[in-house]
């Protein structure tokens, strides 16, 4: 298989309501702002109702936002089970993984299960399937915010400015957060803070 060196293929995985599509959009807007080609796709079906949400983005590419799982460079997971589901489907290739330290406890009756798989088990499987693993510390990030609304997606976007391959500078990032999420005065303050704080809470495992 041929690999296009210029193109960066990113997969975003998580659950409805986590802001995955917005995260992909923030990266795409940053690329547009810096004059790069970009495209992305969203797969969300019944996402508002707790379903899987996936988004696929390609930097320096404008035709097909979808790519083969064996061609993925970077996996950004906002929920552990959803991330493992995707990693499990990749054969013979290990991507770089950025993972939000979040595992959703679900009502097992929805799955006809006695128990849901253990978080430790999922962690171990993810670690084995990643070339490099970066964890975003959800607990410590959460402490910066009061109330129910925790903008993890903006936090991760902030952390992504530290990854050179994406080429997003802090200035661009800040501008994009303001452009996309600056309309609601109350939330724009929270998002601004999330962008300022986010990069502190990512670390390589």
């Amino acid at each position: 298989m041929k690999k296009n060196k210029e193109t960066l293929n990113i997969a975003f995985l998580g659950l409805g309501g986590q802001g995955i599509i917005t995260l992909a959009k923030m990266i795409a807007e940053s690329a547009l702002d810096t004059g790069k080609k970009v495209c992305y796709n969203e797969i969300h079906g019944l996402s508002q109702r707790g379903g899987s949400v996936q988004s696929f983005l390609r930097l320096n590419e404008e035709s097909s936002p979808l790519f083969a799982s064996s061609d993925v460079d970077l996996v950004i997971g906002l929920e552990k089970m959803e991330t493992l589901r995707y990693l499990y489907g990749i054969k013979g290739h290990k991507p770089k993984v950025i993972l939000l330290d979040y595992f959703e406890i679900r009502n097992t009756n929805y799955f006809g299960l006695e128990v849901f798989p253990e978080e430790e088990e999922i962690d171990k499987e993810i670690r084995e399937r990643a070339e490099e693993l970066y964890i975003f510390d959800s607990e410590n990030f959460k402490k910066q915010f009061k109330g129910n609304f925790i903008p993890y997606n903006v936090g991760i976007f902030s952390a992504l400015t530290t990854f050179e391959e994406l080429g997003i500078t802090e200035e661009t990032g800040e501008k994009i957060v303001k452009k996309l999420l600056g309309k609601n005065i109350l939330l724009s303050q929270v998002n601004k803070k999330a962008f300022k704080e986010g990069k502190k809470w990512i670390k390589k495992i």
Binding site: G45, R49, S52, E82
Partner: peptide, 18 residues
């Protein structure tokens, strides 16, 4: 299927009422 993978026990994420 209940599981996407039997080996790893990754249950399907079913859509549900909010």
């Amino acid at each position: 299927k209940i599981f996407d993978s039997e080996e790893l026990l990754i249950p399907r994420t079913l859509p549900r009422l909010c």
